[in-house]
Design a protein around this nucleic acid. Structure first.
Lengths: 153, 153
DNA sequence: GGAAATTCATTCGTATGCAAATGATATCAA
DNA sequence: TTGATATCATTTGCATACGAATGAATTTCC
């Protein structure tokens, strides 16, 4: 029997190993791919603005003038990231910056007229981006998915 | 009546506008936040490796030696991105590179002994990362969510 | 009132992520 | 066989993303 055992062992060593951890089944990996797909769909519809830049404009439309930091909180960006986004929007004339009269630490951000025009014009495209991103799901699946996704975010 | 109409109009102008497009309800925005949360959980458990770096090691464990490009396809990274990831793993001695004997375009990537030790050591932590990322959901919700997320990715 | 803690913004360094251009090699097809 | 195509890898440029450090201004609290 020991001869057979050795033979089996030799064969097994050459076999591919069993892996019970599969990268492609992990939430993090699939979440990253789903996000990538969304960004790609976004870029196909809105080529001259990134999703973070769009988020900044859309949120400014909602809340009006706010501090750069507060805006970052609202759109889930840390201070370093939001600064870059706002800098680029400012360079394109879509937002304007001013100093807070009372609290001298704060940098106020607001839409320019051009920025307001831009975001109003882009919102219909953004609706289509959302629709296309969710296109693989039925209406009922969308409702379920959004509820669960919100719990994870 | 025209007097009343004017009064109403004046009041309405001062009211905050109704916005039927809400950024915080859009898939793309929540997807980005969910991904951010996952990366944060990942970093709390595995501080010295990023999710993409981990993905490269985990996939190399699965498939063994492959070309850099093929690896990129397997872990959803474009050629430019995967190069940077592999360069950093190589600099840390976790992967080794060699030239394909027949096809001289290809750069083969493989785990080093150290890289194999590292990924085996990290996989239990990765299981915990997955568990913690999905912690807000029940077992049944996890099954539903993963099925729907996979459809979107 | 004043020291300590907090908040806001900036800067630096590192790491994805992707489009576009380039060069080397391989494959396909006339 | 050779000319057109396609593939693999690299490089450059731009845009997030975030930790950590810094400085200025404000708030807290004793």
């Amino acid at each position: 029997m020991s001869g057979e055992d050795n033979l089996l062992k030799l064969v097994e060593v050459e076999e591919p190993e069993e892996h019970d951890y599969l990268l492609q089944e992990q939430v993090g990996f699939i979440l990253r791919k789903a996000h990538q797909r969304h960004v790609s769909i976004f870029a196909a519809h809105i080529g001259d603005l990134t999703p973070p830049q769009f988020a900044a404009l859309a949120k400014l439309r909602d809340v009006g003038e706010t501090s750069q930091n507060q805006l970052g909180t609202l759109i889930a960006m840390d201070a370093a990231t939001v600064k870059g986004v706002i800098d680029r929007l400012k360079a394109r004339g879509l937002v304007e910056l001013s100093k807070h009269e009372i609290d001298k630490r704060r940098l106020l951000v607001n839409l320019t007229a051009e920025g307001r025009d831009a975001i109003e014009r882009l919102i219909p495209l953004a609706r289509e981006i959302t629709r296309e991103t969710l296109a693989p799901l039925s209406a009922k699946e969308i409702a379920t998915f959004m509820k669960l996704l919100a719990k994870l975010a």
